[in-house]
């Protein structure tokens, strides 16, 4: 049974968003990290990169798979969690503590297209 945090927004590609003012913290859900298995590398964008809602901004890698990270919101990357470069296992250990990027949102209305915890729970049907 995967952990789903209340108060976060979720995308169909299993990213979570935590809103802090006009900045969105983006990570992947507990369900996603379980599906991936042991994560061996997080391919991060650079600060200052533009991201677009629905388009990839990086990737997670395990031994036998690679999975694109899809940005739930549009905007500019204002911070990347560089610690994940050396400790990708942090995503497995606590997917909600391991934020991946912070995005200064250009269109906060993007959030309206995302699911809340209850809807996401129904979506993954565990």
């Amino acid at each position: 049974m995967s952990k789903i945090l209340e108060g976060l927004k979720y995308s169909e590609s299993h990213e979570w968003v935590k809103v802090e003012g006009n900045v969105a913290l983006v990570g992947v859900s507990d369900y996603a990290q379980k599906e991936m298995g042991d994560i061996t590398y997080v391919d991060l964008p650079e600060e200052g990169d533009d991201v677009i809602a629905g388009e990839e901004f990086g990737a997670l890698e395990s031994v036998k798979a690679a999975s694109d990270l899809i940005s739930p919101v549009s905007g500019v990357v204002v911070a990347v969690n560089a610690a994940l470069e050396d400790t990708p296992e942090a995503v497995n250990e606590d997917a909600y503590a391991a934020w991946i990027i912070k995005v200064e949102m250009s269109n906060p209305a993007d959030l309206d297209a995302l699911m809340d915890a209850a809807a996401y729970k129904a979506y993954i049907k565990e």
């Binding site: 061996t40 590398y41 990737a59 890698e61 395990s62 031994v63 036998k64 798979a65 690679a66």
Partner: peptide, 13 residues
């Protein structure tokens, strides 16, 4: 190792 870079996983990417 580092096989996630390779064609059998990334295919066209």
């Amino acid at each position: 190792t580092l096989q996630a870079r390779e064609q059998h996983i990334k295919r066209e990417k």
